[in-house]
Design a binder for these strands. Sequence first.
DNA 1: GCTGCTACTCACCGGTCGGTGACAGGCTGG
DNA 2: CCAGCCTGTCACCGACCGGTGAGTAGCAGC
Lengths: 218, 218
Amino acid sequence: MSSAAAVLERTELPAEPEKRIRDRAATERAILDAAKGLLAEEGFQNFGINAVARRAGCDKQLIYRYYGGLDGLVETIGADLGSWVKERIPEDSGGMFLLTYGDLMERLALLYLDALRSDPLMRRIVAWEVSENTEQVRRLSEARSKALSQWLERMRGSLPAPKGIDTPAVNAVLIAAIQHLVLAAAIGGQCAGISLKTQKDWDKAATALKRIVRGVYG
Amino acid sequence: MSSAAAVLERTELPAEPEKRIRDRAATERAILDAAKGLLAEEGFQNFGINAVARRAGCDKQLIYRYYGGLDGLVETIGADLGSWVKERIPEDSGGMFLLTYGDLMERLALLYLDALRSDPLMRRIVAWEVSENTEQVRRLSEARSKALSQWLERMRGSLPAPKGIDTPAVNAVLIAAIQHLVLAAAIGGQCAGISLKTQKDWDKAATALKRIVRGVYG
DNA sequence: GCTGCTACTCACCGGTCGGTGACAGGCTGG
DNA sequence: CCAGCCTGTCACCGACCGGTGAGTAGCAGC
C-alpha cells in the first residue's frame, strides 16, 4: 500500500464537500439538506442517523446535539413543508376565471398531480404515511395535510360549494386517487394496468381525472 | 438456575407451537404461514429472514433450504394471491342484474373496497408496492395486479364498454383512489381531511365513490 | 447393528444499526 | 495568558441483520 494509492483514492472521491470548520449554522443546514435529499432519493427505508450523517459529511453525534436525534430532524423537515406549499402555490388562477366549483376542482386536481409528480420528497413522505404508523410519521403526516389543506383553502377562495354533494368525501377520493397514481408511477411506472411513464401516458390519466371531476361536479 | 424456573418459563411461553418432528410439509407450511402473518401484522418494514424463522419456530436455515431465501418465500406468497381472488370472488352478481357498465363498475368498486379493507396482508402488499422498487416487490406486485385484472375480467363478463371514454384510465384512477383510501385509513384512520374509522365514515366514502362512478359512467 | 439419507439446529461470520461518553482543537471573555 | 465553552471527532457499546458451514437427531434399508 503506497501513499500514492491513498492520494489517488482521495482525489477520486467526489467533490470533498468543502470541510465546514466550526460553523454551526452551515452544519445544521448541511444535515437538514442531507436528510431531505436522502429521504427524497432513497425513501424512508434507508433513512437513518448513520446514513444522514454520512451524507452530510459530519458525525452523527452532531445530529443528536443539534436536532435531538432523528425525530427532531424529521420534525424540522415537517416544519419546512409549509414553505413547500408557498413555493408551489400559483398566485394567479392560471389566466382563467374559476366560475364553478368544477372549474376549481379540476384545476386543483391537475395542479396537485403535477406538484406531486415533480417533488420526490413529498412523494416519499406520502408513501411513508401509508406504510408506517409511528409518532414521527404521524407528525410529518399532520404537517403535510395541514399544508395541503391550506393550499386548497387558498385556492378555493369564496367559491360556494355545490349543494347535495358531500364535497369533503368526494374530494378526499380525488386526492387519494392522485396520490396513489403518482406513488405507483414513481415506483413501477404503472398503476392498475395502465402505463404511467411518458408524458402522453400522463395526459391520458389527466384526461380521465378531468372527466371524473366533471362527472361529479359538472 | 433451577430446572423449575426453566419449566416455568417454558409453560409461560404462549402455546409452544407443537414441535413438528421431521415433517417437512408441516414445516414448510409453518414457514409460509409465519411469513404471511408477519407481513400482515407488522408490515414489510420488519419483514426478514430472522423474524420469519423466529415466528415459525424453526431455524432460518430451513427457509433458505425450502424456499431459497426470502425472495423465494415472497414469490410463494405471490403465487398464493391467485387463491385470494378465488376466495373473494362472489360468483353471483349479488342478486342484481348488472345492466350497464356503470352498474358493473359501481359494484366492482364497492367489492374491491371491502375486500381490501378486510385483508391486512393485501394492504401491506399494496403499501409495499408503492414504497420499494426491488425485484421481489415487482414480482409480488405483478402477481397481485394479475389476480386483480382476472377478477375484473371475470366480473365484467360480456358487458360492452362505453364508447368515447378511456375506460382503462378512468378505472385506474378509481382503483388508485380505493387503494389509497384503504391504506391511509388502515394507518392513520383518515385520508385527505376526512375521518375513516367508523362504518358510518366508510358509508360516506362509499357514497362518494358511487357518485363518482355514476358521474363518469352514468 | 451399521450405513446413509433427510430434517433440523447451532455457532459464528462480517456488517450495520441507533446511541453514548470521552476527548481534541479553536474561539472568546476575562 | 488562561479558563471555559463550543464545535467537531473518535472509539466503542449492545443488538440485530442476512448468510454459511459444521454438526446433530431421527428414520429407512440392509
